[in-house]
């Protein structure tokens, strides 16, 4: 009974906070409304016994939203919410599409004959997850690792202000490179300093 009350409070709260993200005037408030939505949506995971994944989602979302708040304030014209803002296009169409999507999905949820529950949760669900990731689902772990590494490289490359074409020119032949502060370390200077590569 208590679990049901907690679930419904968190579910309604998560949906309300999600709605607030696109209703409030301030970017910072929108970010923290999204954080509230994520945390409230993670509590039902804890109710299902997924203690590791629930805590992981909560901690990750707190960090993510704090970083997002910084970017919000960097890029938004009205970070403090001192004046009403409305940066939307095709509001009616979006509302119709999203409402239609919800209705179709909700009708499907209520009408589909879902399969019966098979088996019971293992005594330690976190151990079972770790065992799966290091065993039968190793491929998933490998793909996640590679994906995260590719993300790190791509994000640095994309957000770096100066690339090799800025330094070496369009044909990459400019020597020495055009740097704001000269004296960068390249292969030739490494050869000169350390005497390697001869």
């Amino acid at each position: 009974m208590a679990q049901a009350v907690v679930f419904w409070v968190c579910a309604i709260g998560a949906v309300a906070a999600g709605l607030a993200v696109f209703r409030v005037d301030s970017m910072a408030r929108a970010t923290f409304a999204l954080l509230a939505s994520f945390v409230l949506a993670a509590v039902p995971l804890l109710l299902l016994g997924l203690s590791y994944l629930g805590i992981l989602v909560i901690l990750m979302m707190i960090m993510e939203m704090v970083v997002m708040a910084v970017f919000m304030i960097m890029y938004m014209m009205n970070p403090a919410g001192l004046m009403p803002m409305s940066m939307v296009h095709n509001k009616k169409g979006s509302l119709a599409i999203s409402t239609g999507t919800f209705v179709v999905l909700a009708v499907g949820v209520l009408l589909v004959d879902w399969p019966q529950r098979q088996g019971v949760p293992p005594p330690d669900v976190t151990f079972a997850l770790g065992e799966a990731l290091m065993g039968s689902h190793m491929l998933v772990m490998l793909v996640i690792g590679l994906g995260l590494f590719a993300t790190i490289v791509s994000a640095v490359v994309l957000s770096h202000p100066r690339g090799r074409y800025d330094r070496f020119g369009d044909d990459l032949r400019r020597r020495p490179p055009d740097d704001p502060i000269p004296g960068s370390v390249d292969a030739r200077s490494l050869t000169r300093i350390f005497g390697v590569g001869r």
Binding site: S94, F102, L105
Partner: peptide, 19 residues
């Protein structure tokens, strides 16, 4: 479903890339 629909509304209607 509710979370997905709200997110879809935001992704379709907002102009700001961060939103």
């Amino acid at each position: 479903c509710a979370l997905l629909a709200i997110g879809l509304y935001g992704a379709l209607s907002q102009q700001s890339i961060v939103m």
